[in-house]
Simulated assay, not measured.
Amino acid sequence: MAIHRGKFPYVDADLLLAYVGMETDLIFNRGIDLPGFASYPLLETAKGRDILEGYLADLIALGKKTGTGVILESPTWVANRDRGAAIGYAPDALKQLNQQAVAMMVKVRTAYGDVPTVISANLGPRDDAYSPEAQMSADEAERYHSEQIAALVDTEVDVMSGYTLAYPAEAIGIVRAARRFTIPVVISFTVETDGKLPTGTSLEEAIVEVDAATEGYAAYFMINCAHPEHFNSVLEEKPWMQRVKGIVANASRCSHAELDEAEELDDGNPTDLAQQLVDIRRRYPHIQVLGGCCGTDMRHMGMIAKAAREAP
């Protein structure tokens, strides 16, 4: 297998913080309606841009306070053709918003230039992440996701990050598309309470399949949108685990189905979540990225950074 040619040049930091829990925080804690779970429409107003910039600035400030690097994730998780169309956005508008998102991130990074910062273009699945009804082939996924990636490579983005993916073929398509555009890429799978992808594939099978189909082009793999208790038992000292370098966890122990039905936010226990993530990193010290997904806010991120820094 080839070396990981898609590896982006790491910033000078042994730990990178990543935060993708903004949407649940906006909906449940700030009372902001997000049709289609899309945050990129906030880019269309001055107030919305201020809100988005606030999250980015808060994460960088946390990085500065705790001596960690940060990965800024763009608000473009569902800014692809099908999911955009479902809430009234045409491809041309989506292209502009994808590019505006990165421009906003560059602006914030420039304003806080003393913190090691990576700009990541966040790509989400074409269908429901937790129960995809129509799974694409790898070729279909490459064609589909190439549209969003093509818009983003014309910006100052550092890496493409495919988040909350539920099956290997879609991940393969994203990696192939990124490789064709010669941009680094990260793949993050989500898992159910049994530690397997929503489609029943194990993490090991998914990672091995993606690497085999793409000559190991992905910079690394991550796990997101699941509580550590959902996947801790399937992590093991095998070669595939060396490819997992990031965990961006949910605050709640609930299943995806339970979270979808929830009328109130389950923000879990920030201290407990941080300790569980640090315990995993202690077992697997090659893990470099830690962060929060659904149900988390800056309280959780602060505890994660603090616990990681204080860990022996």
Rank of each mutant, 00 (worst) to 15 (best):
I3V: 07
L17F: 01
Y19R: 08
V20S: 09
V20T: 14
T24P: 03
F28I: 09
F28V: 10
G31C: 06
G31I: 03
A38I: 01
G48I: 11
L52E: 00
A61R: 15
K65P: 03
T68M: 15
T68E: 05
L72K: 02
A86E: 15
A86C: 12
G88P: 08
A90F: 06
D92N: 14
N98F: 02
Q99P: 02
A103K: 12
A111Q: 15
V115T: 12
A121N: 07
L123G: 04
D128N: 15
A129I: 08
S137K: 08
E142C: 05
E147N: 04
E147L: 12
L152S: 10
V159P: 06
M160K: 04
Y163G: 01
E170G: 08
I174Y: 00
R176H: 11
A177I: 02
A178I: 01
I183R: 15
I187N: 02
E192S: 10
K196N: 15
S202Y: 05
S202D: 06
V208Q: 13
E209I: 03
V210L: 01
G216Q: 02
A219N: 08
F221V: 00
F221L: 08
C225E: 10
F231Y: 14
N232A: 15
W240F: 12
V248I: 15
H256W: 14
E264L: 08
R281V: 09
R281C: 15
G291C: 05
G295K: 01
D297I: 00
D297K: 04
M298H: 13
R299L: 13
K306I: 11
P312R: 05
